[in-house]
């Protein structure tokens, strides 16, 4: 995903609160319930991405280390000085 897309997304998201101020139809649940939904939405979206990013980074470093190791093993040993 390009960074420009994310920047645009955030810019648009910033426009949203202006509209939200006018929210007169906020349904008849408690304010607390509304925030619980928003909060858990963010939590459930971010948590897997965080976990996977962590695991991905860890595996990637392991793989790169291994590939470097094998590259080194494949090169002919330099003659002893």
């Amino acid at each position: 995903m390009s960074r420009a897309a994310l920047a645009i997304a955030f810019a648009l998201a910033l426009l949203v609160p202006g509209a939200a101020e006018a929210c007169s139809v906020c349904f008849s649940t408690t304010e607390e319930n509304r925030w619980a939904f928003i909060g858990t939405t963010v939590f459930m979206s971010v948590l897997p991405l965080g976990i996977l990013f962590g695991i991905g980074t860890w595996l990637r470093s392991k793989v790169l280390e291994m590939e470097r190791h094998h590259e080194a093993a494949r090169l002919p040993t330099p003659p002893a000085p």
Partner: peptide, 21 residues
């Protein structure tokens, strides 16, 4: 479905973003 109508904005944006990849 009765969620906070403001959440629709964020999810409209992300949904259209996923059309790009």
């Amino acid at each position: 479905a009765g969620i906070d109508p403001r959440m629709a904005h964020v999810f409209t944006i992300t949904t259209l973003l996923i059309s790009i990849p």
